[in-house]
């Protein structure tokens, strides 16, 4: 493997990690409140607002229905507005996050729904406020599942970021297509695949370990 190829792979790895970590962080930060909103306003929730719950659910599903490659192009004006440019690694974080927020929101919603309703009743009966219930029961009890959800989201973002080459964001996927596929450079293709496998495996192992540790 020539030093040039090595440098390319290294640089692309860096770009992929930047996109994946930043977009996952944003997805969790905004997706979790969205999930809490859906749970709390839904039937049997703490603040019942069935109409709001359905509306948010529909928006979440609508975004998730659009294939990421289409979303990437569709969101170019939004990306330009938020990031100031529609091209490059930083710009790709915008569409990746917009795809990731509803994705993580649904996973988190499932995790929160799994929390035993007996625990919510118990803390309500103790005279706990709704904020206490959300913090000490819902989020705390769902934590191992939420961590698993973050792992799944991270890995999905690795996959999605491969398409970000379309808007010039670089990354491993883009490298594999331009060098490996279009220029028949098997070495690059192979190198990229190995790096991706290692990256995903490390994420999965760390995520599992953290979830297991949190489960007691």
């Amino acid at each position: 493997m020539s030093p040039l190829i090595l440098k390319l792979i290294l640089q692309s790895t860096e770009q992929t990690l930047e996109m994946v970590l930043a977009s996952t962080a944003i997805s969790v930060l905004l997706g979790l409140p969205l999930a809490l909103f859906m749970i709390a306003t839904g039937p049997r929730g703490l603040y019942r607002l069935p109409f709001a719950a359905r509306l948010i659910g529909m928006i979440v599903d609508a975004v998730r229905a659009v294939p990421f490659i289409i979303l990437l192009v569709l969101l170019i004006p939004v990306t330009r507005f938020v990031a100031g440019t529609s091209l490059g690694t930083e710009a790709a974080i915008v569409p990746l996050s917009i795809a990731g927020i509803p994705y993580f929101a649904r996973i988190a919603e499932m995790a929160l729904r799994e929390v035993d309703s007996g625990l919510i009743d118990a803390v309500r009966a103790m005279g706990g406020t709704r904020l206490t219930i959300i913090r000490s029961v819902l989020i705390a009890e769902a934590m191992p599942s939420l961590v698993t959800g973050v792992t799944v989201t991270l890995i999905s973002m690795v996959g999605a970021s491969a398409m970000a080459g379309v808007i010039g964001a670089g990354g491993l996927g883009d490298l594999a297509i331009r060098y490996g596929y279009q220029r028949f450079n098997t070495t690059v293709m192979f190198g990229v695949v190995v790096v991706l496998i290692i990256m995903v495996s490390v994420m999965q192992i760390l995520g599992n370990a953290l979830a297991r540790w949190l489960k007691h």
């Binding site: 007996g118 625990l119 009743d121 103790m126 005279g127 706990g128 000490s136 009890e141 949190l214």
Partner: peptide, 21 residues
């Protein structure tokens, strides 16, 4: 009611302990 509930101790069939604590 939130205050009134604090005067009642409740023991449950399935214990309802927080597993995270």
């Amino acid at each position: 009611l939130v205050r009134a509930r604090r005067k009642i101790g409740l023991v449950f069939q399935h214990f309802n302990l927080l597993t995270s604590r």
